[in-house]
Amino acid sequence: MLELVAASLIGLGAVFFIAGTVGLLRFPDIFCRLHALTKADGLGLALVALGVALLSGSMGDAFRIGLIWFFVAVASATCSHLIARYARASGEAVSDD
């Protein structure tokens, strides 16, 4: 049962990673692509982390996985802001209508 729940979470996480990648490829400019990466991949990682933590069976491992998720989440929000700011400063092409 636990394995089934964990596998579903990991599978769903993979779907969001694919969505993030599809967005990265299809979206028209760097700013829209950042949306796809920060949001879709962020949730993808959270779901995969949750599934793996359920399978790990030890509190220490679960805590470490949680810590990794937390640092990646904070870093990705900050990085996307920095990339967007740099793109604006360097006059990156914008799709705007």
């Binding site: 969505a19 599809v22 967005g23 028209p28 796809a36 949001k39 879709a40 959270a46 209508d97």
Partner: peptide, 23 residues
Amino acid sequence: SVRGAVDVAGRAFAPKMPLRPGF
């Protein structure tokens, strides 16, 4: 964050890509 990810995933997968981006 689930809402945000579902929203952006939906837009990425949608054939017509409903985007009206801007600042």
